[in-house]
């Protein structure tokens, strides 16, 4: 089974070159040119690693994707870019890529970075599995674990308690009581915290407008998102961005 790699790059010459290199080295490759295509491919292509150009559509869309991947998945990604200025490096570090490939690059640079990233991913997965095996028995029961996974997967949408109850397989009252007991907060509070953490990360690390972030998190109006955010952090989204971004 070939390792699947998604290349997100809007320069057709560069993406074709990378695809040729990866094909020759036995990887299964898909190419995307935009944020939307990349997000879609996470579900359809299910890559194990992503190579990500920073300056997609000349709007730094790559950093938005990096921020999304950092907060939403454990998928490793490597930035490819001609930017090497300190400000950009600082910005991309916040999104925690596993590598950074500076243009112009050679075949060996790409392959070495990928092999290293995949090795580290496997090593950390082994650790996680070992820890999880120990933790799983002690920390959460299986129904609560299923509910937490559901929340994590659907954080970009409105999450209804009835759905959580359904995936847990418990009755309503039993689920709410057990959730609070095991997680330490109610389901509503937990979802709220997760959404606000993601919103903070997006405000800090992307150029998405407040409206777009609100929409991404499943809020149907800008004002309800703003109210929620003020309640969480004591600042409006735009003031939060001013305070934490340069």
């Amino acid at each position: 089974m070939k390792t699947k790699i998604l290349v997100v790059e809007d320069d057709k010459l560069v993406s074709f070159e990378i695809k040729s290199i990866l094909d020759n080295n036995g990887f299964d490759v898909n190419i995307c040119e935009s944020y939307a295509c990349c997000i879609k491919n996470l579900d359809t292509f299910k890559p194990e690693l992503i190579l990500l150009d920073i300056d997609l559509s000349k709007k730094y869309e790559g950093i938005q994707i990096g921020s999304y991947l950092n907060s939403k998945s454990n998928l490793p990604f490597i930035y490819i870019t001609g930017y090497t200025d300190i400000e950009t490096l600082k910005r991309i570090q916040t999104t925690k890529p596993v590598g950074y490939l500076s243009k112009p690059f050679r075949e060996i640079d790409i392959i070495n970075n990928i092999e290293l990233a995949l090795y580290n991913k496997k090593a950390s997965l082994d650790n996680v599995i070992n820890e999880a095996e120990v933790e799983e028995e002690s920390k959460y029961s299986k129904p609560i674990k299923r509910a937490l996974e559901y929340i994590d997967t659907n954080i970009n949408q409105e999450i209804k308690t009835s759905e959580l109850i359904r995936v847990s397989g418990w009755s309503k009252f039993h689920f709410i009581r057990e959730f609070a007991k095991e997680v330490g907060v109610t389901p509503y509070q937990y979802i709220f915290e997760q959404k606000m953490n993601l919103a903070s990360s997006k405000l800090k690390n992307t150029y998405q407008t407040v409206k777009e972030i609100a929409f991404d998190l499943g809020y149907t109006s800008n004002s309800s998102f703003t109210n929620a955010f003020v309640k969480h952090s004591g600042l409006s989204p735009s003031n939060f961005r001013k305070k934490y971004c340069r």
Binding site: D11, L13, V14, G82, Y83, D85, K103, P104
Partner: peptide, 13 residues
């Protein structure tokens, strides 16, 4: 500098 590196990349590609 960014433009310069991208142009070199294009030539290499």
């Amino acid at each position: 500098l960014h433009r310069f590196k991208n142009n070199l990349q294009t030539q290499l590609s």
